[in-house]
Simulated scan of single mutants.
Amino acid sequence: MAARQDAGFAAVVDLDGAPHDPAPAPFHQPVLALTQAIGPQTDPDYLPHLTRVLALSTATTYRLTVPGAAHLTFTDAPLCLPPVPSLVGSADRSDVPGPTAAARLAFLDHTLRGTPGDPAAALTAYGELTVHHACGGA
């Protein structure tokens, strides 16, 4: 929500979070949303709401579903918590931080530093990617 209110944010990285605003509002900065694989225990409104917000955005957005991830995968929790898949995912705990950090780096390098190339090509190495191209506007 801070990035929507402050144009000083040049990019947004969403770590398996759903927008909690009552009315869907677009982002005006590029967004990388890293998500866990959606399963029967996932809030059924989570992915539709996130997808709707990303599709409204005026900059290109990326939703990357990381295989074997759970909600806490995107933190350092898998290195510290017991290996409970519902908490930390089914991926090997020592392999978890690398792909999510690499995906964030690829996105931020392109977005903030202008590294040439297509960030989508780099991101597909880390999971299932959905790209929402900018709808225009300011």
Rank of each mutant, 00 (worst) to 15 (best):
H110P: 03
S90I: 07
A70Q: 06
G117D: 00
A101D: 03
C80H: 12
A106K: 01
V88T: 09
G68V: 04
P119K: 07
T100K: 07
L112S: 06
A103E: 02
T75W: 10
G98A: 13
S90T: 15
A91V: 00
T111D: 09
R93F: 04
G114A: 11
A69R: 00
D76A: 14
A102G: 00
A103I: 10
L81F: 15
G89Y: 03
H71I: 14
P82S: 14
T115L: 13
S86G: 12
D95G: 06
R93M: 05
A120G: 08
F74V: 08
L87R: 03
D95Y: 07
P116F: 12
G114P: 03
S94Y: 13
A120L: 13
T73R: 04
G89C: 04
D92K: 11
A120F: 05
L72M: 15
S86K: 13
T100N: 05
A101T: 11
P97I: 14
V66C: 05
P85A: 11
P119M: 08
P82Q: 11
S90C: 08
G68A: 12
S90W: 02
D109F: 06
A103Q: 02
S90F: 00
F107D: 01
P116T: 10
S90N: 05
D109E: 15
L112A: 12
P82T: 10
R93A: 11
G89F: 01
D109W: 07
H71M: 14
H110L: 14
P78S: 14
D118L: 04
P67C: 03
S86P: 04
D109T: 07
P99G: 05
A106I: 02
T73Y: 01
A69P: 02
L87V: 05
V96G: 00
G117Q: 03
A91E: 01
P119E: 06
T75I: 14
T115P: 00
A106T: 08
F74H: 10
P78H: 11
L87D: 01
A77C: 06
L108V: 09
